[in-house]
Design a protein around this nucleic acid. Structure first.
Lengths: 204, 204, 204, 204
DNA sequence: CATGAATGAGTATTCATTCAT
DNA sequence: AATGAATGAATACTCATTCAT
């Protein structure tokens, strides 16, 4: 109602539109080719306003990366009650695939990897908050399945990497190499095959 | 003709030194940060000479990528006689790891992925001549092992992707996220564990 | 009227704090590097308030210069009764040195000189209200000394410039060339030497 | 005759025209207001060529300052044979005045002083190579006059500063405060008066 | 055939000033 | 009367590519 809150809402609207425009620019063209002027134009603000919100191009990109990975927090946890181990793991795999494709995480990953030589801290951030964090979520799920007796007791951390490696082969890897790689129709089946292979080894 | 061949050898020497300098520049800083002037300086030629050999920066980068992947041709084939299936697959895995680390293929991969939005044809080339070509080599080896009775008959193409996915998790993935990721001391053991998992599923 | 005067005093307080902040910014970094936003922040007001008080950056700088030189009015006049000519002139010289150093007039001078191409009227103002005004004060003193018989009758205006030139050589000149030139310990002695030279020429 | 010397002469021509254009821009508008693009246009080169010759705006300005003060080397020395002390000192004074006015040294001084907060090293350079170097030339002349018996033995260093202070009062000081201060018609007479004052004290 | 000087379009960033609330 | 968010014009500097010699 007051002036302050009015301003705040305006400001947050602008910030959001800047972030959206920047995300679009960074994801489609990569860091270098995204021009601050273009981002400002797409966000319907002046470059000066852009710089009021984000002190530099680096900072803007870092904000986008941070935003993307705070949104994935706990996103892979799933309820195991009343579901078979196979079903639980397929749910996890499908959630992961949805994130990577619909959330454009594969494209983001590409840009982050591209900037490793110039911004290694960002890649580290992604590795820790994206890759490792989701590993831990997967390991929790595996541990729960072991506890319930659905999986043989084993080193779940190591096996998680094997499982994840197989799944990434279909979910992430091809998407890194093509500009607009869409989720393939048979993706869920491919993930299922990875899980079946996994269960052949560790299934109780 | 003596003069002609002398000139030709000079020219090829220059071409090689350009390629070497360009490779170094592209791999360490990425495409955008590699400046044609720097490459010319490092190669001890003028920029004009550089452009005589390669019509554009894009063409130069493409040549580097092509060179890298012609060198990997048939590199994963191995003789299976008198070796256990486990040993054969470890030989293949170790050869792959050596290529990726010592041949700086991980770094090259990073740059190629970075340039997907601007040079998708290069990424396709790498996918076809690098990724898929080596898949076929791996599949040949697996087929031979099936034939010899070391592996159960199965869809070797699909299983090759599972095996490769697990191995990449240790060989490629972490290297994409760190500027100067060195081959870890326990890498061979990690690859061994992937192969053991594979054999648990498909071993005869 | 109580409210009106309260408002007025608030306003004058703000004006004063703006002037102080602006002075600090202009003197330390020069005109170009002083940013209106910084000045507003240092003065604890908004930029809009800043512009309510001073219509432009130019106007603000002009106000600072005007303020500085109204403060020097009559500052060099001194009572000659019961003091030797040498003592009188040393008092004048020391007062001048104090103004230039403690009042940061040397720094202000530097900025005014810097802005001669863009704001010649300011430099003229300083020349007239600063340089010439103090000349007249000095001439008055010299005339009084002539009248008292301490100095030979002569062209006091011309001689004042000679005396001032010698003194500036130690008081102003070096301060223009160093960012934070402090008053040297032997400054008073140097000024004394200038006065002695002057008295050798014009002393009775 | 060769390619190399042809290129060198072209290059030196461009360098000279850049220096001239830059000098004009810096002297008339000051450092901040001189735009590299304007300088390039005035010098009939592209901005890129400008940057090939001078790595930065700072470096360009430094080159101008250095050029100006190497040109003044030994410029105040004069032959004393067969000339009265008064004449010798007037020759020195006139040479100095010529430099300051015709060589636009007063304008340059203004810009250097303006940049003291941001480029104190340049001011130091000017002080040492301009101010102090010419002091030493003046002192040499004074010493020679003492030796010849034209001046009483005395501390020539201190007296040189007094003499220079008086002269600057007419030659430099007013020029700092006005955009296009021309050499006044009576300047030589004013300098003569300073010298006469000086000789009243130290003349033999 | 080789050179290196020259280019012009492009990029991130800054700042005095205004205006809706 | 006071705010602070917003602006648009300006600026230093870079780089792939070309061309006269």
């Amino acid at each position: 109602m007051g002036l302050a809150s009015y301003r705040k809402s305006i400001s947050e609207t602008k910030r959001a539109s800047i972030l959206a425009a920047a995300r679009e620019n960074f994801l489609t063209g990569g860091y270098s080719r995204a021009a601050m002027a273009d981002i400002a134009r797409d966000a319907d603000v002046s470059t000066a306003t852009l710089y009021k919100h984000f002190a530099s191009k680096d900072a803007l990109f870092a904000a986008i990366v941070a935003d993307a990975y705070t949104a994935t927090e706990n996103s892979l946890f799933t309820d195991i009650d009343g579901k078979s181990a196979r079903q639980v793991l397929r749910d996890v795999g499908d959630a992961y695939a949805t994130q990577q494709f619909d959330g454009r995480m594969n494209e983001l990953l590409r840009v982050v990897i591209a900037e490793v030589p110039t911004a290694p801290h960002l890649a580290r951030h992604v590795y820790e908050n994206g890759v490792l964090a989701r590993y831990e979520q997967l390991i929790s799920v595996l541990d729960a399945l072991v506890k319930r007796g659905d999986l043989k007791p084993h080193d779940t951390a190591e096996s998680a990497r094997h499982l994840a490696g197989m799944v990434k082969e279909f979910v992430v890897w091809p998407a890194l190499f093509a500009p607009r790689f869409e989720k393939p129709a048979d993706l869920s089946a491919k993930i299922g095959a990875c899980i079946d292979a996994y269960l052949k080894i560790y299934g109780a």
